[in-house]
Simulated scan of single mutants.
Amino acid sequence: MTARIYKPARNAMQSGKAKNEWFLEFLRETRPSADPLMGWTSGDTSTQVKLRFDTREEAEDYAKRNGIAYMVQPETPARMQKKSYSDNFKFGRKDNWTH
């Protein structure tokens, strides 16, 4: 069983930086198969498990203690967008003024 340790990206509705959680998620190793009687898709239920940790080191220690092979997905750096309030009222701007 292999696991992936990663820090999820913020969604579009978040602007703060307080969310510093790391997740350990098991990867799918077999293809899902159809149940012959009901036709439902069945497979490995370990892919439904998502463990939450405060730091990456805690997640790695958990995987080592339990003998889980893991890979760490590097954290994506935050991109800063340079914004200025005065640009909303700049002469010769390319976008329409919507206020």
Rank of each mutant, 00 (worst) to 15 (best):
R28L: 08
T41R: 12
K50Q: 08
Y62A: 03
A59M: 02
A63C: 12
E57S: 10
T30H: 12
L37W: 10
R79V: 13
K50D: 07
V72K: 07
K64P: 02
L51Q: 00
T76R: 14
Q81S: 13
D44W: 03
G43A: 06
T47R: 06
D35E: 09
K64I: 00
K64C: 03
Q81V: 13
V49D: 08
Q48C: 00
P36V: 09
R31A: 15
R52E: 14
D35M: 05
E25F: 06
A34K: 11
K83F: 09
K83H: 09
Y70P: 01
D35N: 12
M38S: 08
T41P: 05
W40P: 03
R52T: 15
E58T: 05
W22G: 06
R56C: 15
W22H: 06
K64M: 00
K50I: 06
A59F: 03
D61W: 02
R79Y: 11
E25G: 12
A78I: 15
W40Q: 14
G67H: 11
W22P: 02
D54N: 14
T76N: 12
F26N: 08
R56K: 15
E25I: 12
Q48G: 13
E60R: 11
N66Q: 13
A78T: 15
S33G: 01
Q73T: 02
G43K: 00
W22V: 05
V72C: 05
F23A: 05
